[in-house]
Amino acid sequence: MFPGIDGFEWTPGHLIFLGIFYTVVAVVFLTLALAAVRAWRSYRANRAEAIRWQADFHDLPARDRACRHALTGEMRERVCELGFDCRRCETHARLLEERPPAQAPAADTEAGGVRLPLDRLYHRGHTWVRPEKDGTVTVGLDELASRLMGTPDRVRLPKAGRRISVNGTGWRMWKHGSDVRVLSPVDGEVAATGGPEAGWYLKVKPAEGRLDARHLLRPDEAAPWMRRELERVQWTLGHSLADGGVMVQNLSEAVPAEAWDAVCAGVFLQV
């Protein structure tokens, strides 16, 4: 390089300048390489789904990340930091200990015209989980989500035997040109698939043989949450969903085309 050039001499100036310059170049490329290596490792370790949710959750507006205990009024203005994974949340565990859940309501509840059957648990991504007698769980879209999607234009369900994880991709749907990645409410292995006509989408063998439901909303908790969800849709739309007090049956037709993508994004927590 420099030596060999006619008249070249190393001076302190050269050493300082070139030393700094090549250190900077090395730092830049080592950083890039570090990111690439880490990415490759994460990818190989199948962490892509978890990372996707972590990144998506981080990018959601703060008011879409409200803690379930803030929605029920147990706490004030709390924003979730753990990606709605209450299984890892100490506050959730503590609250559960202090105030064990009240007796389940006697009959199915409803919120703003959305029915919330008692026999199931709800996930923040608008799916429900119903434990079955055979030890599997059934997963389906809740009423708000199914009214929104109506009959999807296309559904892509995972094959039986595929492992799914909480907040990873459960299945994908398309409607009016928008795609929706429905968040899986449970960890487990897909046992069977249904579809919009069946009223359910997946039957899942829960991981470790039993359903860990700490991150799922109980029906009594689901009602204030659902009221908040309806409010969020209305914010996105800029107008009320209620038509004479009864929510529009077929939301997919009622939502204006230009707001469709934003409404889907809001309801299914998509980024």
């Binding site: 990111a35 690439a36 990415a39 994460s42 962490r47 990372i51 996707r52 972590q54 990144a55």
Partner: peptide, 14 residues
């Protein structure tokens, strides 16, 4: 694309 997503995430961290 999962690999891009993961790379973006790791890149953001550094």
């Amino acid at each position: 694309v999962p690999s891009f997503l993961v790379f973006e995430f790791e890149l953001h961290k550094v």
